[in-house]
Design a protein around this nucleic acid. Structure first.
Length: 556
RNA sequence: UGAGGGGUAGUUUAACGGCAGAACCGUCGGCUCUGACCCGACUAGUCGUGGUUCGAAUCCACGCCCCUCAGCCA
Protein backbone atom coordinates (compact mmCIF):
# COMPACT_ATOMS: atom_id res chain seq x y z
CA UNK A 1 0.00 0.00 0.00
CA UNK A 2 1.16 3.51 -0.72
CA UNK A 3 2.82 5.25 2.16
CA UNK A 4 0.70 8.27 2.93
CA UNK A 5 2.97 9.63 5.60
CA UNK A 6 4.27 13.02 4.55
CA UNK A 7 7.75 13.98 5.65
CA UNK A 8 7.65 15.19 9.21
CA UNK A 9 7.68 18.94 9.16
CA UNK A 10 9.16 20.90 11.96
CA UNK A 11 7.00 22.68 14.47
CA UNK A 12 7.59 24.75 17.58
CA UNK A 13 6.98 21.83 19.94
CA UNK A 14 9.58 19.68 18.21
CA UNK A 15 11.96 22.61 18.44
CA UNK A 16 11.40 22.78 22.20
CA UNK A 17 11.90 19.04 22.59
CA UNK A 18 15.05 19.13 20.48
CA UNK A 19 16.42 21.86 22.69
CA UNK A 20 15.47 19.96 25.83
CA UNK A 21 17.20 16.89 24.50
CA UNK A 22 20.25 18.91 23.59
CA UNK A 23 20.51 20.31 27.11
CA UNK A 24 19.61 17.02 28.76
CA UNK A 25 16.65 18.59 30.54
CA UNK A 26 14.78 15.31 30.90
CA UNK A 27 17.72 13.06 30.11
CA UNK A 28 16.53 13.01 26.53
CA UNK A 29 13.22 11.48 27.50
CA UNK A 30 9.83 12.33 26.06
CA UNK A 31 6.65 11.34 27.86
CA UNK A 32 3.32 12.76 26.71
CA UNK A 33 -0.30 12.21 27.56
CA UNK A 34 -3.82 12.82 26.31
CA UNK A 35 -5.98 14.08 29.19
CA UNK A 36 -9.68 14.15 28.21
CA UNK A 37 -12.42 15.04 30.63
CA UNK A 38 -15.02 12.25 30.34
CA UNK A 39 -17.96 14.56 29.83
CA UNK A 40 -18.50 14.28 26.10
CA UNK A 41 -17.44 12.60 22.91
CA UNK A 42 -14.16 13.14 21.10
CA UNK A 43 -14.04 15.13 17.87
CA UNK A 44 -11.54 15.88 15.11
CA UNK A 45 -9.95 18.58 17.28
CA UNK A 46 -9.15 15.97 19.91
CA UNK A 47 -7.72 13.79 17.15
CA UNK A 48 -5.24 16.58 16.43
CA UNK A 49 -4.13 16.48 20.05
CA UNK A 50 -4.06 12.69 20.26
CA UNK A 51 -2.02 12.32 17.08
CA UNK A 52 0.31 15.11 18.19
CA UNK A 53 0.95 13.61 21.62
CA UNK A 54 1.14 10.03 20.43
CA UNK A 55 3.21 10.95 17.38
CA UNK A 56 5.74 12.85 19.48
CA UNK A 57 6.14 9.91 21.86
CA UNK A 58 6.61 7.58 18.89
CA UNK A 59 9.06 9.76 17.02
CA UNK A 60 11.22 10.44 20.06
CA UNK A 61 11.11 6.90 21.35
CA UNK A 62 9.11 7.95 24.39
CA UNK A 63 5.88 7.03 26.10
CA UNK A 64 2.26 8.07 25.79
CA UNK A 65 -0.37 7.88 28.52
CA UNK A 66 -4.14 8.12 28.42
CA UNK A 67 -5.39 9.91 31.47
CA UNK A 68 -8.94 10.86 32.31
CA UNK A 69 -9.23 14.21 33.96
CA UNK A 70 -12.13 13.12 36.14
CA UNK A 71 -12.13 15.76 38.83
CA UNK A 72 -15.74 16.85 38.48
CA UNK A 73 -18.22 14.07 39.37
CA UNK A 74 -21.17 16.28 38.52
CA UNK A 75 -20.38 16.22 34.83
CA UNK A 76 -18.59 13.01 34.17
CA UNK A 77 -19.90 9.57 33.32
CA UNK A 78 -18.55 6.09 32.73
CA UNK A 79 -20.31 6.04 29.35
CA UNK A 80 -17.95 8.75 28.15
CA UNK A 81 -14.90 6.99 29.53
CA UNK A 82 -15.75 3.88 27.52
CA UNK A 83 -16.50 5.84 24.37
CA UNK A 84 -13.30 7.85 24.61
CA UNK A 85 -11.15 4.75 25.04
CA UNK A 86 -12.80 3.18 22.03
CA UNK A 87 -12.14 6.28 19.92
CA UNK A 88 -8.53 6.75 21.02
CA UNK A 89 -7.83 3.09 20.33
CA UNK A 90 -9.50 3.32 16.94
CA UNK A 91 -7.36 6.31 16.06
CA UNK A 92 -4.35 4.10 16.65
CA UNK A 93 -2.89 5.77 19.74
CA UNK A 94 -1.67 2.94 21.94
CA UNK A 95 -1.33 3.82 25.62
CA UNK A 96 0.22 0.41 26.18
CA UNK A 97 -1.38 -0.25 29.54
CA UNK A 98 -0.78 3.24 30.87
CA UNK A 99 -4.40 4.14 31.44
CA UNK A 100 -4.78 6.51 34.36
CA UNK A 101 -7.33 8.73 36.02
CA UNK A 102 -6.82 11.92 37.96
CA UNK A 103 -9.01 10.21 40.54
CA UNK A 104 -6.24 7.62 41.03
CA UNK A 105 -4.32 10.46 42.65
CA UNK A 106 -6.98 11.84 44.98
CA UNK A 107 -5.16 10.43 47.99
CA UNK A 108 -1.79 11.85 46.99
CA UNK A 109 -3.37 15.16 46.11
CA UNK A 110 -4.99 15.31 49.52
CA UNK A 111 -1.67 14.68 51.25
CA UNK A 112 -0.02 17.37 49.18
CA UNK A 113 -2.80 19.77 50.11
CA UNK A 114 -2.07 19.19 53.80
CA UNK A 115 1.60 19.76 53.02
CA UNK A 116 0.76 23.14 51.55
CA UNK A 117 -1.46 24.02 54.52
CA UNK A 118 1.34 23.12 56.91
CA UNK A 119 3.70 25.28 54.89
CA UNK A 120 1.30 28.19 55.24
CA UNK A 121 0.60 28.13 51.50
CA UNK A 122 -3.05 27.14 51.58
CA UNK A 123 -6.06 28.02 53.70
CA UNK A 124 -9.71 27.19 54.18
CA UNK A 125 -11.96 30.03 53.10
CA UNK A 126 -15.55 30.44 54.34
CA UNK A 127 -16.46 33.06 51.76
CA UNK A 128 -19.34 32.22 49.43
CA UNK A 129 -18.79 31.83 45.72
CA UNK A 130 -20.22 35.28 45.14
CA UNK A 131 -18.03 36.82 47.79
CA UNK A 132 -14.95 35.16 46.38
CA UNK A 133 -15.77 36.66 43.04
CA UNK A 134 -16.14 40.12 44.56
CA UNK A 135 -12.89 39.80 46.45
CA UNK A 136 -11.06 38.66 43.34
CA UNK A 137 -11.03 42.10 41.79
CA UNK A 138 -11.17 42.64 38.04
CA UNK A 139 -8.86 42.56 35.05
CA UNK A 140 -7.67 46.04 35.88
CA UNK A 141 -8.12 46.19 39.66
CA UNK A 142 -6.33 44.05 42.24
CA UNK A 143 -8.34 41.82 44.52
CA UNK A 144 -8.37 41.95 48.29
CA UNK A 145 -7.56 39.35 50.88
CA UNK A 146 -10.25 37.15 52.33
CA UNK A 147 -10.88 37.70 56.05
CA UNK A 148 -10.15 34.00 56.52
CA UNK A 149 -6.77 34.19 54.82
CA UNK A 150 -4.73 34.34 58.01
CA UNK A 151 -6.18 31.38 59.85
CA UNK A 152 -3.68 29.29 61.76
CA UNK A 153 -2.24 26.11 60.33
CA UNK A 154 -4.03 24.15 63.04
CA UNK A 155 -7.40 25.68 62.27
CA UNK A 156 -6.91 25.18 58.53
CA UNK A 157 -5.93 21.56 59.05
CA UNK A 158 -8.90 20.91 61.28
CA UNK A 159 -11.35 22.57 58.91
CA UNK A 160 -9.87 20.86 55.86
CA UNK A 161 -10.05 17.44 57.49
CA UNK A 162 -13.65 18.07 58.40
CA UNK A 163 -14.35 19.17 54.84
CA UNK A 164 -13.00 15.84 53.73
CA UNK A 165 -15.12 14.04 56.30
CA UNK A 166 -18.24 15.58 54.83
CA UNK A 167 -19.16 17.75 57.79
CA UNK A 168 -19.98 20.84 55.73
CA UNK A 169 -22.49 21.80 53.11
CA UNK A 170 -21.56 22.20 49.47
CA UNK A 171 -20.37 25.69 48.77
CA UNK A 172 -19.80 26.56 52.41
CA UNK A 173 -16.02 26.38 52.29
CA UNK A 174 -13.15 25.85 49.89
CA UNK A 175 -9.43 25.27 50.18
CA UNK A 176 -7.44 27.98 48.43
CA UNK A 177 -3.79 28.39 47.67
CA UNK A 178 -2.32 31.46 49.36
CA UNK A 179 -0.54 33.25 46.57
CA UNK A 180 -1.21 36.90 45.70
CA UNK A 181 -4.56 38.66 45.49
CA UNK A 182 -2.95 41.48 43.53
CA UNK A 183 -1.33 39.33 40.87
CA UNK A 184 -1.91 40.47 37.31
CA UNK A 185 -2.48 36.77 36.62
CA UNK A 186 -5.97 36.36 37.92
CA UNK A 187 -5.39 32.63 38.13
CA UNK A 188 -2.84 33.35 40.89
CA UNK A 189 -5.29 35.35 43.07
CA UNK A 190 -5.61 32.58 45.66
CA UNK A 191 -7.07 29.91 43.34
CA UNK A 192 -9.49 27.32 44.69
CA UNK A 193 -7.91 23.90 45.13
CA UNK A 194 -10.80 21.96 46.61
CA UNK A 195 -14.55 22.41 46.63
CA UNK A 196 -17.10 20.47 48.67
CA UNK A 197 -19.21 18.21 46.50
CA UNK A 198 -21.43 15.54 48.00
CA UNK A 199 -21.57 13.78 44.68
CA UNK A 200 -20.94 10.20 43.72
CA UNK A 201 -17.89 9.80 41.53
CA UNK A 202 -17.93 7.19 38.73
CA UNK A 203 -14.73 5.68 40.07
CA UNK A 204 -14.31 6.65 43.71
CA UNK A 205 -17.98 6.39 44.58
CA UNK A 206 -18.78 8.20 47.83
CA UNK A 207 -15.30 8.07 49.28
CA UNK A 208 -14.79 11.81 48.86
CA UNK A 209 -16.73 14.90 49.82
CA UNK A 210 -14.15 17.25 48.41
CA UNK A 211 -12.87 17.25 44.84
CA UNK A 212 -9.75 18.90 43.42
CA UNK A 213 -10.06 21.58 40.77
CA UNK A 214 -8.41 21.21 37.38
CA UNK A 215 -5.49 23.48 38.28
CA UNK A 216 -4.74 21.62 41.46
CA UNK A 217 -5.00 18.19 39.86
CA UNK A 218 -3.48 18.54 36.43
CA UNK A 219 0.13 19.47 36.95
CA UNK A 220 0.47 17.12 39.89
CA UNK A 221 -0.96 14.27 37.82
CA UNK A 222 1.60 15.07 35.13
CA UNK A 223 4.34 15.03 37.73
CA UNK A 224 3.23 11.70 39.20
CA UNK A 225 3.22 10.15 35.74
CA UNK A 226 6.63 11.67 34.92
CA UNK A 227 5.17 13.52 31.98
CA UNK A 228 7.87 15.67 30.42
CA UNK A 229 5.93 17.73 27.90
CA UNK A 230 2.37 18.49 28.92
CA UNK A 231 0.69 19.70 25.77
CA UNK A 232 -2.58 21.58 25.99
CA UNK A 233 -4.51 24.29 24.19
CA UNK A 234 -3.96 28.03 24.16
CA UNK A 235 -6.60 29.00 26.71
CA UNK A 236 -4.39 27.48 29.41
CA UNK A 237 -1.50 29.86 28.82
CA UNK A 238 -2.28 31.90 31.93
CA UNK A 239 -2.82 28.73 33.97
CA UNK A 240 0.76 27.71 33.26
CA UNK A 241 1.89 30.13 35.99
CA UNK A 242 -0.21 28.25 38.48
CA UNK A 243 0.86 24.89 37.06
CA UNK A 244 4.46 25.89 37.73
CA UNK A 245 3.67 27.43 41.12
CA UNK A 246 2.13 24.22 42.49
CA UNK A 247 4.96 21.97 41.32
CA UNK A 248 7.50 24.42 42.69
CA UNK A 249 5.73 24.84 46.04
CA UNK A 250 5.45 21.09 46.46
CA UNK A 251 9.03 20.47 45.38
CA UNK A 252 7.99 17.63 43.11
CA UNK A 253 9.24 16.47 39.72
CA UNK A 254 8.80 19.18 37.13
CA UNK A 255 7.11 18.92 33.79
CA UNK A 256 6.51 21.66 31.28
CA UNK A 257 3.22 22.78 29.89
CA UNK A 258 3.25 23.75 26.21
CA UNK A 259 0.22 25.32 24.59
CA UNK A 260 -0.85 25.03 20.95
CA UNK A 261 -3.79 26.36 18.94
CA UNK A 262 -6.84 24.13 18.90
CA UNK A 263 -8.30 23.07 15.58
CA UNK A 264 -11.18 24.93 14.00
CA UNK A 265 -12.74 23.72 10.77
CA UNK A 266 -14.84 25.64 8.29
CA UNK A 267 -18.58 24.93 8.01
CA UNK A 268 -18.86 23.26 11.39
CA UNK A 269 -18.75 23.94 15.12
CA UNK A 270 -16.34 22.34 17.51
CA UNK A 271 -17.29 23.58 20.96
CA UNK A 272 -18.66 20.99 23.33
CA UNK A 273 -21.56 23.19 24.35
CA UNK A 274 -22.69 23.80 20.78
CA UNK A 275 -22.28 20.17 19.81
CA UNK A 276 -24.39 19.08 22.76
CA UNK A 277 -27.12 21.44 21.66
CA UNK A 278 -27.09 20.04 18.13
CA UNK A 279 -27.50 16.53 19.51
CA UNK A 280 -30.00 17.29 22.28
CA UNK A 281 -32.24 19.40 20.09
CA UNK A 282 -32.16 16.88 17.27
CA UNK A 283 -30.42 18.92 14.60
CA UNK A 284 -28.19 15.90 14.06
CA UNK A 285 -29.00 12.27 14.70
CA UNK A 286 -26.81 11.60 17.69
CA UNK A 287 -23.11 11.82 18.40
CA UNK A 288 -22.25 9.50 15.52
CA UNK A 289 -24.18 11.43 12.91
CA UNK A 290 -21.96 11.26 9.80
CA UNK A 291 -22.36 15.01 9.27
CA UNK A 292 -20.72 15.59 12.61
CA UNK A 293 -16.92 15.71 12.88
CA UNK A 294 -16.91 13.61 16.03
CA UNK A 295 -14.59 10.62 15.88
CA UNK A 296 -17.66 8.39 15.83
CA UNK A 297 -19.27 10.51 13.17
CA UNK A 298 -16.16 10.35 11.02
CA UNK A 299 -15.92 6.60 11.52
CA UNK A 300 -19.54 6.09 10.51
CA UNK A 301 -19.06 8.44 7.59
CA UNK A 302 -16.30 6.16 6.27
CA UNK A 303 -13.18 8.02 7.33
CA UNK A 304 -10.19 5.92 8.35
CA UNK A 305 -7.66 6.54 11.13
CA UNK A 306 -5.01 6.83 8.41
CA UNK A 307 -6.93 9.60 6.66
CA UNK A 308 -7.32 11.48 9.93
CA UNK A 309 -3.64 11.08 10.69
CA UNK A 310 -2.75 12.35 7.24
CA UNK A 311 -4.97 15.34 7.85
CA UNK A 312 -3.52 16.17 11.26
CA UNK A 313 -0.03 15.88 9.80
CA UNK A 314 -0.99 18.18 6.95
CA UNK A 315 -2.33 20.99 9.13
CA UNK A 316 0.68 21.07 11.43
CA UNK A 317 0.72 22.72 14.82
CA UNK A 318 1.36 26.28 15.90
CA UNK A 319 0.25 28.94 18.35
CA UNK A 320 -1.71 30.99 15.84
CA UNK A 321 -5.49 30.75 15.99
CA UNK A 322 -6.66 29.27 12.73
CA UNK A 323 -9.65 28.11 10.78
CA UNK A 324 -8.79 25.18 8.54
CA UNK A 325 -10.56 24.70 5.22
CA UNK A 326 -12.63 21.50 5.48
CA UNK A 327 -11.43 20.64 1.97
CA UNK A 328 -8.10 19.69 3.52
CA UNK A 329 -9.91 16.98 5.45
CA UNK A 330 -11.69 15.85 2.31
CA UNK A 331 -8.42 15.77 0.41
CA UNK A 332 -6.89 13.56 3.09
CA UNK A 333 -9.71 11.03 3.02
CA UNK A 334 -9.75 10.90 -0.78
CA UNK A 335 -6.03 10.24 -0.81
CA UNK A 336 -6.41 7.35 1.61
CA UNK A 337 -9.56 5.86 0.11
CA UNK A 338 -8.17 6.14 -3.41
CA UNK A 339 -5.56 3.48 -2.70
CA UNK A 340 -7.70 1.48 -0.31
CA UNK A 341 -11.06 0.96 -1.96
CA UNK A 342 -12.31 -1.35 -4.65
CA UNK A 343 -14.13 0.20 -7.60
CA UNK A 344 -17.77 -0.65 -8.18
CA UNK A 345 -20.63 0.75 -10.21
CA UNK A 346 -23.66 2.35 -8.63
CA UNK A 347 -26.26 4.66 -10.10
CA UNK A 348 -27.52 7.25 -7.65
CA UNK A 349 -30.30 8.76 -9.72
CA UNK A 350 -31.30 6.06 -12.17
CA UNK A 351 -32.56 6.66 -15.69
CA UNK A 352 -33.57 3.56 -17.60
CA UNK A 353 -32.05 2.85 -21.00
CA UNK A 354 -33.49 0.17 -23.28
CA UNK A 355 -31.00 -1.17 -25.78
CA UNK A 356 -33.29 -1.99 -28.64
CA UNK A 357 -30.95 -4.12 -30.71
CA UNK A 358 -29.91 -6.21 -27.72
CA UNK A 359 -31.96 -9.43 -27.75
CA UNK A 360 -34.64 -9.82 -25.10
CA UNK A 361 -33.69 -12.39 -22.50
CA UNK A 362 -30.05 -12.36 -23.51
CA UNK A 363 -27.52 -11.88 -20.77
CA UNK A 364 -23.88 -10.99 -20.86
CA UNK A 365 -21.34 -10.74 -18.15
CA UNK A 366 -18.03 -8.96 -17.80
CA UNK A 367 -15.09 -9.87 -15.65
CA UNK A 368 -14.03 -6.54 -14.24
CA UNK A 369 -10.97 -5.84 -12.10
CA UNK A 370 -11.92 -4.48 -8.70
CA UNK A 371 -8.71 -2.55 -8.06
CA UNK A 372 -7.81 -1.05 -11.45
CA UNK A 373 -5.77 1.61 -9.65
CA UNK A 374 -3.48 -1.03 -8.16
CA UNK A 375 -1.76 -3.33 -10.65
CA UNK A 376 -0.60 -5.64 -7.86
CA UNK A 377 -4.14 -6.64 -6.95
CA UNK A 378 -5.89 -9.14 -9.17
CA UNK A 379 -9.31 -9.37 -7.59
CA UNK A 380 -12.21 -9.09 -10.00
CA UNK A 381 -15.91 -9.86 -10.13
CA UNK A 382 -18.50 -10.68 -12.79
CA UNK A 383 -20.87 -7.90 -13.72
CA UNK A 384 -24.08 -8.87 -15.53
CA UNK A 385 -25.37 -6.98 -18.55
CA UNK A 386 -28.79 -7.09 -20.13
CA UNK A 387 -31.14 -5.27 -22.48
CA UNK A 388 -32.31 -2.76 -19.92
CA UNK A 389 -29.86 -0.82 -17.84
CA UNK A 390 -29.80 2.20 -15.56
CA UNK A 391 -27.50 5.11 -16.12
CA UNK A 392 -27.05 8.27 -14.10
CA UNK A 393 -29.64 10.93 -14.92
CA UNK A 394 -26.78 13.44 -15.01
CA UNK A 395 -25.10 11.42 -17.73
CA UNK A 396 -27.72 12.35 -20.29
CA UNK A 397 -28.62 15.72 -21.77
CA UNK A 398 -31.25 16.10 -24.40
CA UNK A 399 -29.63 19.27 -25.61
CA UNK A 400 -26.00 18.90 -24.62
CA UNK A 401 -24.14 22.06 -23.76
CA UNK A 402 -20.67 22.77 -25.10
CA UNK A 403 -18.09 20.45 -23.63
CA UNK A 404 -20.60 17.81 -22.51
CA UNK A 405 -18.97 14.43 -23.16
CA UNK A 406 -21.75 12.11 -22.11
CA UNK A 407 -24.87 10.66 -23.62
CA UNK A 408 -27.17 12.73 -25.82
CA UNK A 409 -29.46 11.99 -28.75
CA UNK A 410 -27.38 10.57 -31.59
CA UNK A 411 -24.25 10.52 -29.45
CA UNK A 412 -22.19 7.40 -28.83
CA UNK A 413 -20.58 6.77 -25.43
CA UNK A 414 -18.92 3.84 -23.75
CA UNK A 415 -20.66 1.92 -21.00
CA UNK A 416 -17.77 1.28 -18.69
CA UNK A 417 -16.25 -2.17 -19.27
CA UNK A 418 -19.15 -3.11 -21.58
CA UNK A 419 -20.25 -1.73 -24.94
CA UNK A 420 -20.53 1.46 -26.91
CA UNK A 421 -24.11 2.64 -27.11
CA UNK A 422 -25.81 5.37 -29.10
CA UNK A 423 -28.91 7.13 -27.91
CA UNK A 424 -31.70 6.83 -30.48
CA UNK A 425 -34.77 8.20 -28.72
CA UNK A 426 -36.02 9.97 -25.61
CA UNK A 427 -39.22 8.85 -23.90
CA UNK A 428 -41.09 11.41 -21.81
CA UNK A 429 -44.14 11.33 -19.60
CA UNK A 430 -47.09 13.68 -19.95
CA UNK A 431 -45.29 16.26 -17.86
CA UNK A 432 -42.38 16.30 -20.24
CA UNK A 433 -40.02 14.61 -17.85
CA UNK A 434 -37.59 12.13 -19.36
CA UNK A 435 -38.51 8.67 -18.10
CA UNK A 436 -36.55 6.42 -20.41
CA UNK A 437 -34.00 6.36 -23.17
CA UNK A 438 -33.77 4.14 -26.22
CA UNK A 439 -30.41 3.17 -27.56
CA UNK A 440 -28.53 0.74 -29.79
CA UNK A 441 -25.30 -0.97 -28.96
CA UNK A 442 -22.41 -2.10 -31.11
CA UNK A 443 -21.69 -5.81 -30.44
CA UNK A 444 -18.19 -5.35 -31.84
CA UNK A 445 -17.27 -3.10 -28.94
CA UNK A 446 -17.63 -5.78 -26.29
CA UNK A 447 -15.34 -5.05 -23.38
CA UNK A 448 -15.29 -1.38 -24.23
CA UNK A 449 -12.93 -1.19 -27.23
CA UNK A 450 -13.90 -0.66 -30.83
CA UNK A 451 -12.06 -2.79 -33.37
CA UNK A 452 -12.18 0.01 -35.93
CA UNK A 453 -10.39 2.31 -33.55
CA UNK A 454 -13.12 4.91 -33.31
CA UNK A 455 -13.18 6.92 -30.14
CA UNK A 456 -15.95 8.06 -27.89
CA UNK A 457 -15.74 11.21 -25.81
CA UNK A 458 -17.39 9.80 -22.75
CA UNK A 459 -17.41 6.73 -20.57
CA UNK A 460 -20.32 6.35 -18.20
CA UNK A 461 -21.21 3.86 -15.51
CA UNK A 462 -24.30 1.69 -15.52
CA UNK A 463 -26.14 -1.13 -13.78
CA UNK A 464 -28.17 -3.92 -15.37
CA UNK A 465 -31.80 -3.18 -14.48
CA UNK A 466 -32.76 -6.80 -14.06
CA UNK A 467 -29.85 -7.50 -11.71
CA UNK A 468 -29.69 -4.17 -9.95
CA UNK A 469 -29.67 -4.01 -6.20
CA UNK A 470 -31.82 -1.20 -4.82
CA UNK A 471 -30.25 0.62 -1.90
CA UNK A 472 -30.67 3.68 0.23
CA UNK A 473 -27.80 6.10 -0.20
CA UNK A 474 -27.30 9.00 2.18
CA UNK A 475 -25.58 12.01 0.67
CA UNK A 476 -24.03 14.37 3.17
CA UNK A 477 -23.04 17.95 2.74
CA UNK A 478 -21.54 20.53 5.06
CA UNK A 479 -23.57 20.99 8.24
CA UNK A 480 -23.58 24.79 8.03
CA UNK A 481 -23.88 27.29 5.23
CA UNK A 482 -21.26 29.68 6.57
CA UNK A 483 -17.52 29.00 6.83
CA UNK A 484 -17.64 30.18 10.41
CA UNK A 485 -21.15 29.56 11.75
CA UNK A 486 -20.24 31.04 15.14
CA UNK A 487 -19.42 34.39 13.60
CA UNK A 488 -21.94 37.17 13.26
CA UNK A 489 -24.50 38.15 15.84
CA UNK A 490 -27.15 35.55 15.10
CA UNK A 491 -27.67 32.17 16.73
CA UNK A 492 -25.42 29.64 15.00
CA UNK A 493 -28.44 27.36 14.57
CA UNK A 494 -29.72 29.77 11.94
CA UNK A 495 -26.70 28.91 9.83
CA UNK A 496 -27.51 25.21 9.60
CA UNK A 497 -27.53 23.85 6.05
CA UNK A 498 -31.05 22.54 5.35
CA UNK A 499 -29.61 20.28 2.63
CA UNK A 500 -26.88 18.66 4.70
CA UNK A 501 -28.56 15.27 4.28
CA UNK A 502 -30.15 14.02 1.10
CA UNK A 503 -31.39 10.45 0.77
CA UNK A 504 -31.68 8.79 -2.63
CA UNK A 505 -32.84 5.41 -3.90
CA UNK A 506 -29.91 4.09 -5.83
CA UNK A 507 -29.27 1.03 -7.98
CA UNK A 508 -26.11 -0.93 -7.30
CA UNK A 509 -24.20 -3.63 -9.11
CA UNK A 510 -25.12 -7.03 -7.61
CA UNK A 511 -21.68 -7.76 -6.18
CA UNK A 512 -22.51 -5.34 -3.40
CA UNK A 513 -25.13 -7.71 -1.98
CA UNK A 514 -22.66 -9.15 0.50
CA UNK A 515 -21.27 -5.84 1.74
CA UNK A 516 -21.41 -5.37 5.49
CA UNK A 517 -21.36 -2.23 7.66
CA UNK A 518 -18.02 -0.47 7.49
CA UNK A 519 -17.09 -1.79 4.03
CA UNK A 520 -15.75 0.95 1.82
CA UNK A 521 -15.94 1.41 -1.93
CA UNK A 522 -15.45 3.88 -4.66
CA UNK A 523 -18.62 4.22 -6.69
CA UNK A 524 -16.87 4.99 -9.92
CA UNK A 525 -17.23 8.54 -11.18
CA UNK A 526 -19.30 9.40 -8.10
CA UNK A 527 -17.43 9.19 -4.83
CA UNK A 528 -16.38 7.11 -1.89
CA UNK A 529 -19.07 5.29 0.04
CA UNK A 530 -19.32 2.97 2.99
CA UNK A 531 -21.99 0.65 4.30
CA UNK A 532 -23.88 2.27 7.16
CA UNK A 533 -24.69 0.74 10.53
CA UNK A 534 -28.37 0.79 9.60
CA UNK A 535 -27.74 -1.49 6.64
CA UNK A 536 -29.33 -4.96 6.56
CA UNK A 537 -29.28 -7.78 4.06
CA UNK A 538 -32.79 -6.76 3.00
CA UNK A 539 -32.13 -3.09 2.85
CA UNK A 540 -28.65 -1.90 2.04
CA UNK A 541 -27.77 1.56 3.30
CA UNK A 542 -24.71 3.46 2.14
CA UNK A 543 -23.13 6.70 3.32
CA UNK A 544 -21.28 8.99 1.01
CA UNK A 545 -17.95 9.59 2.69
CA UNK A 546 -16.85 12.18 0.17
CA UNK A 547 -17.57 12.86 -3.46
CA UNK A 548 -14.93 12.56 -6.14
CA UNK A 549 -13.53 15.89 -7.26
CA UNK A 550 -15.58 17.04 -10.19
CA UNK A 551 -13.92 19.66 -12.35
CA UNK A 552 -16.69 19.38 -14.91
CA UNK A 553 -19.47 20.21 -12.46
CA UNK A 554 -17.40 23.06 -11.11
CA UNK A 555 -16.95 24.66 -14.48
CA UNK A 556 -20.62 24.67 -15.35
C1' U B 1 -8.00 49.74 29.43
C1' G B 2 -4.00 44.91 34.07
C1' A B 3 -1.67 40.54 32.31
C1' G B 4 -0.63 36.57 29.00
C1' G B 5 -0.33 35.04 23.81
C1' G B 6 -0.51 35.60 18.39
C1' G B 7 -0.13 38.06 13.25
C1' U B 8 4.28 34.63 6.54
C1' A B 9 0.21 33.45 -0.43
C1' G B 10 -7.24 32.82 -0.32
C1' U B 11 -6.35 28.66 3.75
C1' U B 12 -2.91 25.71 6.94
C1' U B 13 2.17 25.92 7.66
C1' A B 14 8.15 25.89 6.84
C1' A B 15 12.39 28.93 6.94
C1' C B 16 14.97 30.98 13.54
C1' G B 17 20.58 36.76 10.78
C1' G B 18 22.16 34.41 4.54
C1' C B 19 18.02 32.26 -2.34
C1' A B 20 10.74 33.31 1.48
C1' G B 21 9.51 26.95 0.37
C1' A B 22 5.46 23.27 0.81
C1' A B 23 0.48 21.39 1.16
C1' C B 24 -4.68 22.53 0.37
C1' C B 25 -7.85 25.64 -2.62
C1' G B 26 -8.22 27.99 -7.47
C1' U B 27 -6.95 28.54 -12.92
C1' C B 28 -4.88 26.39 -17.37
C1' G B 29 -2.85 22.21 -19.90
C1' G B 30 -1.30 16.84 -20.50
C1' C B 31 -2.87 11.75 -19.63
C1' U B 32 -7.21 8.67 -19.20
C1' C B 33 -12.31 2.88 -20.25
C1' U B 34 -13.56 7.17 -13.62
C1' G B 35 -14.44 14.94 -16.39
C1' A B 36 -11.26 10.69 -10.64
C1' C B 37 -6.13 9.44 -9.73
C1' C B 38 -1.48 10.93 -11.78
C1' C B 39 1.77 14.64 -14.30
C1' G B 40 3.08 19.76 -15.74
C1' A B 41 2.43 24.99 -15.45
C1' C B 42 0.29 29.38 -13.34
C1' U B 43 -1.79 32.77 -9.68
C1' A B 44 -0.40 34.45 -4.78
C1' G B 45 2.77 36.16 1.02
C1' U B 46 6.43 38.16 5.63
C1' C B 47 0.52 43.57 9.73
C1' G B 48 2.69 48.93 9.55
C1' U B 49 6.66 52.58 10.39
C1' G B 50 11.42 53.35 11.87
C1' G B 51 16.22 51.29 13.57
C1' U B 52 20.64 47.74 14.05
C1' U B 53 23.36 44.95 10.14
C1' C B 54 27.25 43.76 4.36
C1' G B 55 22.51 41.26 4.85
C1' A B 56 16.14 41.17 8.72
C1' A B 57 10.11 37.22 8.21
C1' U B 58 13.94 36.41 11.99
C1' C B 59 17.11 41.21 16.39
C1' C B 60 15.45 46.30 18.64
C1' A B 61 11.73 50.43 19.20
C1' C B 62 6.98 52.41 18.44
C1' G B 63 2.26 51.50 16.52
C1' C B 64 -2.07 48.51 14.48
C1' C B 65 -5.15 44.20 14.52
C1' C B 66 -6.77 39.36 16.64
C1' C B 67 -7.27 35.67 20.75
C1' U B 68 -7.32 34.32 26.20
C1' C B 69 -8.02 35.31 31.65
C1' A B 70 -12.45 38.19 36.50
C1' G B 71 -16.13 29.25 37.48
C1' C B 72 -16.15 26.31 43.74
C1' C B 73 -15.79 24.07 34.67
C1' A B 74 -11.76 21.92 32.08
Amino acid sequence: MTDLTPPTTSNFIRTIIDEDNATGKYDGFVHTRFPPEPNGYLHIGHAKSINLNYGLAQDYGGLFNLRFDDTNPEKEEQEYIDAIMEDVRWLGADWDGRLYHASDYFGQLYDWAEQLIKAGKAYVDDLSADEIREYRGTLTEPGKNSPYRERTVEENLDLFRRMRAGEFDEGSRVLRAKIDMASPFIVLRDPVMYRILHAEHPRTGNAWHIYPTYDWAHGQSDSIESITHSICTLEFENNRRLYDWFQEALGIRRSQQIEFARLNLTYTVMSKRKMIRLVKDGYVNGWDDPRFWTIRGLRRRGYTPEAIRLFTDMIGVSKANSLVDYQMLEHAVREDLNVRTSRVMAVLEPLKVVIENYPKGKEDSFDVPSFPQDKSREESRLIPFSREIYIERDDFMEEPIKGYNRLAPGVEVRLMNAYFITCTAVVKDSAGRIVELRATYDPATRGGQSPDGRKVKGTIHWVSAEHALPAEVRLYDRLFIKPNPEEGGEDFIENLNPDSLKVVDAMLEPSLATAVPGDKFQFMRVGYFCVDLDSTADRLVFNRTVSLKDTWAKGK
